[in-house]
């Protein structure tokens, strides 16, 4: 059964990745945010890391490789730009930061693409050791995986044209708002803002194309993702900046590996305390001045 479900999960990736292939993305450059931190942040590797109580950590250490599931199609968070084979973004930086604290150098971290449909199966089957992929912590998911963090509290927000007068979700009545088919943000619009006209595609890049052409009035999803697009199309789009939901992003971990969860939580806490978190944010998503660091939830 396990083998079967692995192949199903892989097939699902294939399916969903194929679905996303149509997007005509422009190469993503790291956002040129605060100006001070142009250079990639570096995370000192903790050579003395020892989480021997964790099966997952021990196996990864023995293999000399930490497998991390990330998104490959979310600019600013986890994205592989055209012509590159390495993902970049805030999630990637968080993974490197945590990885370093757990004793893995950047070249010992192997990034694997995960999509919404296979994050849980990949963790359950050990295809990845952890998932840092705009992964919202919720109770349903906690039934099958564990979460460290949150390392960021995203909120659903709106990306609009720079000169738009949409100032929040209450201005959406009669407007066309675009999101990804079947996603939580799309469901929120459908349920809570019925006056808005929802348009859905399989990728955000199609939404952004429509926003550019004026076919839709707004794109909605987590603000972190929107920041990525706003940075990519500087001057053309803006993020409204009034999040109307809370999406705590967590690091997904295999269920019942408390030692690993504690270690990752410690690593996140340390990063937030010593400024590495801020460096990572500014390197990928822009100015962090008005961004609050989240409270780690050690449930």
């Amino acid at each position: 059964m396990k083998k079967l479900s692995i192949s199903i999960a892989s097939a699902a990736v294939g399916l969903l990745v194929l679905g996303g292939c149509g997007q005509g993305g422009t190469p993503e450059e790291p956002a040129e945010g605060g100006g001070e931190s142009q250079a990639a942040p570096e995370y000192p590797v903790n050579e003395n890391a020892d989480v021997a109580d964790s099966k997952t950590w021990q196996a990864a250490k023995d293999a000399g490789e930490l497998k991390v599931g990330v998104k490959f199609d979310q600019p600013g968070l986890g994205n592989v730009s055209t012509g590159s084979d390495q993902p970049e973004g805030f999630d990637i930086e968080i993974a490197k930061m945590v990885g370093a604290e757990l004793g893995f150098a950047p070249d010992e971290i192997k990034f694997t693409e995960t999509v919404s449909a296979n994050r849980e199966p990949f963790l359950q089957q050990g295809n990845v050791d952890m998932v840092v992929a705009t992964y919202t912590i919720n109770d349903e998911r906690k039934k099958v995986v564990d979460f460290a963090g949150p390392y960021y509290v995203a909120g659903q927000d709106l990306l609009v044209a720079a000169d738009s007068d949409i100032a929040g979700p209450e201005d959406l009545a009669g407007k066309k708002v675009c999101s990804v088919d079947g996603s939580t943000p799309a469901q929120n619009i459908e349920e809570k803002y019925k006056d808005a006209e929802l348009v859905t595609y399989d990728t955000y890049s199609k939404c952004v194309t429509d926003l550019q052409s004026g076919s839709v009035d707004a794109v909605t999803t987590d603000d972190a993702i929107l920041r990525g697009y706003a940075a990519q199309f500087e001057g053309e789009f803006k993020v409204v900046g009034k999040p109307f939901t809370e999406e705590p992003y967590g690091v997904g971990l295999p269920k019942d590996d408390k030692a690993l969860r504690d270690a990752v939580n410690d690593a996140l806490q340390k990063g937030m305390d010593d400024g590495k978190w801020t460096e990572a944010f500014e390197y990928t998503l822009g100015p962090a001045d008005d961004v609050k660091m989240p409270e780690i939830d050690r449930y």
Binding site: S5, S116, A117, N138, E140, R141, V145
Partner: peptide
């Protein structure tokens, strides 16, 4: 399907 997966990560398969 996408919708359901988003809501019930514990029931993906």
């Amino acid at each position: 399907m996408r919708n359901a997966i988003e809501l019930r990560g514990d029931l993906v398969i």
